[in-house]
Write a protein that binds this DNA or RNA. Structure first.
Length: 400
DNA sequence: AATCCACAGGAAGTGCTGGGCG
DNA sequence: CGCCCAGCACTTCCTGTGGATT
């Protein structure tokens, strides 16, 4: 059909929105002026950081809570408020260690945010650290370093950087540094050296999951600001809250679903968001995550995934690493590719497990060895949809 | 009780990219 | 220019192991 006309229709719909009043208030990185049901955590973080206002160094702080419990929002919120009051006596840097998951890129981010120009590659870590320290110590101020999702950094690179960061005050003469570590993985503490652990966790703040009632309240308030009056039903809001409550009180998920449901309703020209928009939004959201994940994966990871799908189709009995590897070599041969080693494929399987596309469990089959039992953990349809975009792999699809 | 399978996953190294510095 | 750096994707070599079978 006429693509151009449909495209124009979409633009027109969104240029005269009936649902949205301020769509950006539902975007994932928006930090609202008001964070309901996190008053305790806000006050605790505030009082821990308060000594900074009088020029003394606050303790290092460790923040823990499941995904979508407001850790990042509260941290950003409190820092923003404090910086407004403190002027230039306090500086803050915020680094997401999932996006910047190497020592170099974390230091690069900190330097850049402090206004120190450094190249994004090329220097030694020691040089980078030295420049950061010099920059920090050039003013008699306090620098608060927030490392969000710090577990990602530590799991990949060890805790060296954290160690030096928590000890940097020994080498500073005028300035001071406080570190705030944020994570949703409490087990990550086990990866830490005892010295780092005791230093980073001078103080701890725990973020409990939101309850259903709290989620409902938050969504109602946000919907009032972001959506037009009468453009949504109460049932729709409640369904969002209920889904998110089931997913361990994940507020980000709740807001994501609401945004997607609103987009759907807007696109369809519906007068208001109904429950069916919400449930469809949830399904699509889940699917989109998987499709995007698969699409952006390296070639051989796609081949490994495809091997597993082939195997599940062939025989429903349990699938182990050896099966996958044989199948994978098969597929490589078919398209004239050099297969990777089994050691490497084993790592790829672990990667696929950590992103949640498959689930693995180490099992011992007695005489028949010790290996991994492998299952697909995401929607097969969504995975195949992601794979089929890759021209190299798409020829191998089970049902073209 | 000993054996031994089929791997898991650590350690170290290679070759490459994309840069730095003097 | 030549040498240095970090990071990545990967290989090679390796030690460790739960439990059915012998």
């Amino acid at each position: 059909m006429d693509t151009l006309r449909s495209l124009e229709e979409i633009f027109v719909k969104f240029s005269k929105p009936r649902i949205f009043r301020a769509r950006e208030l539902l975007l994932p990185d928006y930090v609202p002026e008001d964070l309901p049901h996190r008053e305790k955590q806000i006050l605790k973080l505030g009082s821990l950081l308060a000594p900074a206002m009088a020029g003394s160094r606050p303790s290092n702080i460790f923040i823990y809570g499941l995904p979508g419990t407001g850790k990042t929002a509260v941290t950003k919120y409190v820092l923003r408020k404090m910086l407004e009051k403190a002027g230039d006596r306090i500086q803050a840097t915020y680094v997401n260690c999932r996006q910047n998951n190497t020592n170099y890129s974390v230091l690069f981010e900190i330097c850049t945010q402090l206004g120190e120009k450094v190249p994004f590659t090329g220097l030694s870590l020691a040089e980078l650290f030295k420049r950061m320290r010099r920059k920090i110590d050039s003013k008699a101020s306090l620098v608060i370093v927030v490392l969000d999702e710090v577990d990602h950094l530590v799991k990949k690179n060890g805790d060296d950087l954290l160690y030096y960061l928590t000890r940097i005050n020994l080498d500073l003469t005028r300035a001071k540094v406080s570190v705030i570590g944020v994570t949703n993985d409490l087990k990550f503490m086990e990866y830490l050296d005892a010295r780092v652990k005791s230093s980073l966790c001078e103080e701890e703040i725990v973020f409990p999951p939101y309850t259903y009632e709290e989620l409902e309240d938050i969504l109602k308030k946000r919907a009032e600001q972001a959506l037009n009056p009468g453009s949504y039903t109460e049932e729709a809001i409640r369904l969002c809250a209920a889904i998110a409550a089931r997913q361990k009180g994940d507020c980000r998920l709740a807001l994501d679903i609401l945004l997607k449901a609103a987009d759907l309703a807007e696109l369809e020209g519906a007068p208001r968001i109904e429950e069916n928009h919400v449930s469809r939004a949830y399904k699509e959201l889940e699917k989109d995550v998987v499709v995007d994940l698969v699409k952006t994966m390296p070639l051989h990871a796609k081949l490994v995934l495809l091997s597993i799908i082939h195997l599940t189709k062939e025989k429903p009995k349990i699938i182990i690493t050896g099966d996958v590897y044989r199948k994978y070599k098969d597929l490589c041969k078919k398209i004239g590719l050099d297969a990777l080693t089994q050691r490497r494929v084993s790592d790829i399987l672990s990667d696929l497990d950590t992103v949640g596309l498959i689930s693995t469990k180490i099992v011992s089959l007695g005489r028949y060895g010790r290996t991994k039992r492998i299952k697909i953990a995401a929607s097969e349809k969504a995975i195949l949809e992601g794979i089929k975009e890759d021209p190299t792999v798409s020829t191998l699809l089970p049902f073209p």
